[in-house]
Amino acid sequence: MAVPVAVPNFWRTHTTHLLSAIGNTPLIRLERIAADLPGIEIYGKAEFMNPGGSVKDRPALNMILEGERTGRLTKDRILLDSTSGNTGIAYAMICAAKGYKVKLCLPKNASQERKRMLTAYGAEIVFTNPAEGSDGAIRRCREIYESNPDIYFYPDQYSNPANWKSHYETTAPELIRQSEGRITHFVAALGTSGTFVGTSRRLKREIAGVRCISAQPSAGFHGLEGLKHMPTAIVPAIYDQAIADDNLWLETEDAYRMVRRLAREEGLLVGISAGGNIVAARRVGQDLARRGERGVIVTVLCDGASKYLSEPFWDDSL
């Protein structure tokens, strides 16, 4: 008699609101990426599984909820912010579901995929000078807001404590629970710095001896989507350098190579900043392994690769 094949146990078995599907992402062990590092475990938080496709769903939702709580966001105001992409997509998704209007400033060189996603959610886009990158978008956004502050809700993801608090309240507790408190190192690259600052603050409160290590592009001119080289960038008000026990410098090409490796060796099709985070996590792991120490290194897989598939870096020769 044939033995029935066990059906996988899918735990999302009940109906839910779209916005309740944000967070509670899986923590995935990267077996092959860490295979050459004895005593080292590397885990990636699968933030690409959020409904908006990135880690930015968390701060975007919290900033919008905070705006509603404080009365700064009402149905007759337009949500306005600058974004290199993912926060904009998260704002646009959440505001579409909640019935708010959205206006976003982004550099002209944003990919077609991004522009189309934002437009599909009904957001209005203001293009800014591509040569000035995300800092140009920030400046333009401030001008628009200051010219007419009464019609906008400007959450300002770079300065809004609700950004880092979303990670303090959700990302970090999830990581502690999923790792059963075993985390020895948390690694994250800096953009708004919200993920690093919020998660690190909570981990340091809950886990004795945990080390939190930031990462940044090695120069102001780089191709690491969403990341900032703090010595030359407009430094976000929420950034707190003192939280980092150490900082690692990332090369764009290393992140590109890691993105290709993650796809082929782990089956994880992730974006460039996730690649950068794993480069940094591996460097921490190599350091520990060299000293003969063990480590449970956790980082964030910020988004998936769908927005980058037309980029030339998938070509192995690059």
């Binding site: 290199s84 992409g85 982004l106 550099p107 002209k108 060189n109 944003a110 990919s111 077609q112 995929e113 991004r114 522009k115 293009f127 591509p130 040569a131 990158g133 995300s134 001119f221 780089h222 191709g223 690491l224 989507e225 969403g226 927005k307 980058y308 598939l309 037309s310 980029e311 030339p312």
Partner: peptide, 19 residues
């Protein structure tokens, strides 16, 4: 222009820097 936020158009027939 650095390839941040995807510097390259995904439509080969529409390869202009967007205005």
């Amino acid at each position: 222009v650095p390839s941040i936020a995807g510097g390259r158009s995904w439509q080969p027939w529409k390869h202009r820097l967007c205005r």
